[in-house]
């Protein structure tokens, strides 16, 4: 299957800020992560990055992040408008 690339914003709640989530993700899934921007306070963590890999691996990685409580948005953040 062909590789895909997707660009995302991750939003971490306060309780996950100190956890090495991206390292864990790289160990669990065959997905190349490439970080482009990050902003972290004691209340929220924001990270923009790209995922590259098989579509099924990317989808599984996103599902794992969401299960963990990370909000995963496309690079546009909101595409659905009023």
């Amino acid at each position: 299957m062909a590789e895909e690339k997707t660009r995302l914003w991750l939003m971490f709640p306060a309780r996950l800020i100190t956890r090495p989530i991206i390292w864990e993700l790289a160990k669990k899934f065959e997905v190349v992560t490439n970080i482009r921007q990050a902003s972290i306070t004691d209340e929220v963590g924001l990270l923009s990055l790209s995922f590259q890999g098989e579509r099924s691996e990317i989808k599984a990685a996103i599902a794992w992040l969401e299960e963990m409580g990370v909000k995963v948005e496309p690079v546009e953040i909101n595409t659905i408008e009023g």
Binding site: K71, E76, I80
Partner: peptide, 26 residues
């Protein structure tokens, strides 16, 4: 769920060469 629909819209916008007014034409 909203999040899944939101990401799908981003994918569709990137894939078919459409003029997506609030994505690639934003």
């Amino acid at each position: 769920a909203y999040d899944q629909v939101n990401r799908l819209c981003s994918e569709i916008a990137g894939k078919y060469g459409w003029g997506f007014v609030n994505v690639n034409l934003r």
